[in-house]
Design a protein around this nucleic acid. Structure first.
Lengths: 186, 186
DNA sequence: TTGACGTGAGAACGAGCGTTCTCCTACGGT
DNA sequence: ACCGTAGGAGAACGCTCGTTCTCACGTCAA
């Protein structure tokens, strides 16, 4: 393979890492699997990411940006501020139904490495904090009381974990109904 | 160490497995760690559990019985059927606050081995199904509409996962408030 | 043309770990 | 007392995997 630009190699490595780590679990994927899937040589891989843990970190970080970007894009297609909140759960349902869906990458990573890698834990916390903050913005924009945020967040997290375990998109609909009921309670 | 009764050795092995698997993650604990912590020799361990995967299975199974037993015991201390439902979340809060709490063992196991071990996946699904069925009983006993079950379940799952990641018992209180609001909505 | 350098392919290294095997001790039945 | 057997300690085996090293090749500057 011809000389490969550093940035391109990095993207290819992260593309392979994302597909393999998410699909098979992080510990089940070796650096050599990443090399084979990406076409980036081991030497290059270790130039870009001095250790596997940093590749994992970069994978979670890039996925976080994309994930929240796609969610925000979908939500912004709705006008009414309350509809936007419910749209979050519509988007979840769509996500759960995608082929290859295996649950939330961050929750899974936490289960795998939460006790071992503090860098992974930091990524997971940061992602969840950002998601919660996004919900808080939606709640505020709708003029709804702030305590609603945490409840919506828990519904979304419960839906993600349950959809992963049961391999059905159904939990998103249940969560959406619960969210709708909560919007105007008390 | 003197001759050890088979059943006793099994319990000691499972005690060690539970503490280590839950505390450090399954893949991070070797069979030799279990031997060292339990005092059960490797030979004995492999007589009792022909492979690590079956020790994992037995660990999840025994923990499932204990976990649901403790929950039911706590809930039964409450008279009012609706109070019982809310007591589930009180119990969660108590659990989250226990020293060494690291999230839901089944969610974590799913994150670790969901893509690799179908036996572990079966244990996780079975545990979550049983927990959901228990909630369904509580809902029915309170004369509340069946669709409430799924929503309470999602709140509980969301609380477990969030409490694990953030290492605080707070999500249980948020979930309890959301549950209370849902009890009499619509 | 030459030589220094970067790179890819893949071997090599070293550690960890699941699983099995060896060897020795101790005990129970006769 | 003697033998057969079970069990414990821990070495050994085979494999995986993260990481590094070797070596040959191609490129570019002088």
């Amino acid at each position: 393979m011809a000389v490969m630009d550093r940035a391109v190699a990095r993207e290819q490595a992260l593309d392979a890492a994302e597909e393999l780590f998410y699909g098979r679990g992080i510990q089940a994927v070796g650096m050599d699997d990443i090399r084979a899937a990406s076409g980036v040589s081991l030497k290059r891989l270790y130039q870009l990411f001095p250790a596997k843990e940093q590749l994992v970190e970069a994978y979670l970080e890039r996925r976080d940006v994309r994930w929240r970007g796609r969610l925000a894009e979908f939500v912004q297609g709705h006008e009414d501020p309350e509809e936007r909140i419910l749209a979050v759960f519509d988007w979840l349902e769509r996500w759960f139904g995608e082929p290859g869906f295996r649950g939330c990458a961050w929750i899974n990573s936490y289960g795998e490495l939460g006790a071992t890698s503090s860098r992974v834990v930091a990524q997971v916390r940061s992602h969840k904090r950002a998601f919660r903050a996004y919900l808080a913005d939606l709640v505020a924009d709708a003029g709804l009381p702030a305590p609603l945020t945490g409840r919506l967040f828990l519904l979304a997290e419960g839906a993600m974990v349950t959809a992963g375990i049961t391999a059905t998109p159904e939990p998103a609909r249940e969560a959406r109904q619960a969210a709708a009921a909560l919007l105007h309670s008390t």
